[in-house]
Amino acid sequence: MFDTALSAHDLLFLAKGAGVTLLVTAISVAFGTILGILCGVFRFQVGPYWASPVTFILDIFRSIPLLIQLVLANAFLGMVLKLRMSGFTIACGVLTLYTAAYCAEIVRGSIGSVPGTTRRAGRSLGMTWFQDMRYIVLPLATRVALPSWIGLALGVMKDSALVYVVQVTELLKSTQILITRLQEPLFLLMICGAFYFLISFPIARFGGYLEKRWSND
């Protein structure tokens, strides 16, 4: 069945695509999470009224399909602002904001899940707002946020396939290039899927490991 024209060189080409997928995802999830935490804490702290401008902007990034965001960002930065930015930079920028928008929602919800009475107990012991955040809210909210955050990270990894529209050759685009040349779509997509799995599996398992470690309390 696997009588294929796929060479070691082609496999390397796919692995490089997988590397790009991993890199775009890692950068976007890292910066998107930091930005998302800042926005989420801000939204929780100032309440819905004062946070509404931020909420509105984040909602835009959550509600417009990623493909459209990428195309529009590319056109806007290139043609309107006349900035010379690589497709890779644009891809990371758009995916970072996209991640931040979802992450802010997760952060806001999980901070809200920490009972006010528990926080009040911390403050009553003389802890500052920051100490309460650092030693009580952060650990408790992280436990609540973790499953959703893992889901977000895996989702961003798969959504990153769309960055081909800004000329970034990631895993799926690499696969398509080979499909065009070798005409073996099923076999190549299987390999492509295996690469995605190899990237996702450790992330999912790591999440499972943390959840288990934290379940003693």
Binding site: T117, R120, A121, G122, L125, G126, Q131, Y135, R143, D217
Partner: peptide, 25 residues
């Protein structure tokens, strides 16, 4: 101050609950 609701910090052991504020504050 001690409240009606049980306000343990659930992610910390009993000892760590009691040590937290003396350590940090």
């Amino acid at each position: 101050i001690v409240f009606q609701q049980f306000n343990a910090f659930p992610h910390l052991t009993v000892l760590e609950n009691v040590m937290l504020a003396p350590r940090k504050v």
